[in-house]
């Protein structure tokens, strides 16, 4: 089975989503990702019992943080699927790609650095 999915996805392999902490996600954004999604095992199927549930909580915490700092929590999502669900994997990849494309590139990647060029002098509060 050869399934095509968006070529813009960079996969970072982790041993288990339970091993993903806030830093990994924030790092991805700082390194230039326009969006990040965490693909965990189906709920109830975690080899380590609760790894994907823990990841879900952390993802939600980072979404909140992204909202607070202005990058936007909707650039981050978590999905659950099994290793056997190839078509679903491609579907999620395409879905996430479409969503992020709609949001536009991460403002962190714009050459000026600013979100819209409105604050070239920097924040002064």
């Amino acid at each position: 089975m050869r399934i095509q999915y968006s070529p813009n996805i960079r996969i970072v392999e982790m041993t288990c989503t339970g091993n993903i902490d806030h830093r990994v996600i924030l790092n991805a954004f700082e390194e230039g990702a326009d969006g990040v999604y965490v693909a965990g095992c189906l709920e109830g199927d975690c080899h380590f019992q609760k790894g994907n549930f823990r990841a879900k909580k952390r993802v939600n915490a980072v979404k909140k943080l992204l909202d607070e700092i202005g990058l936007g929590g909707d650039r981050l999502e978590m999905y659950n699927l099994s290793a056997a669900q190839g078509p679903r994997f491609a579907e999620i990849a395409n879905e996430m790609t479409a969503k992020i494309k709609a949001l536009g590139p991460s403002p962190l990647n714009s050459p000026a650095g600013g979100c819209c060029g409105c604050s070239k002098e920097g924040a002064t509060n």
Partner: peptide, 10 residues
Amino acid sequence: LRIMRKLEGN
């Protein structure tokens, strides 16, 4: 903080 400040263009 880095992300926040970069978004602010500073």
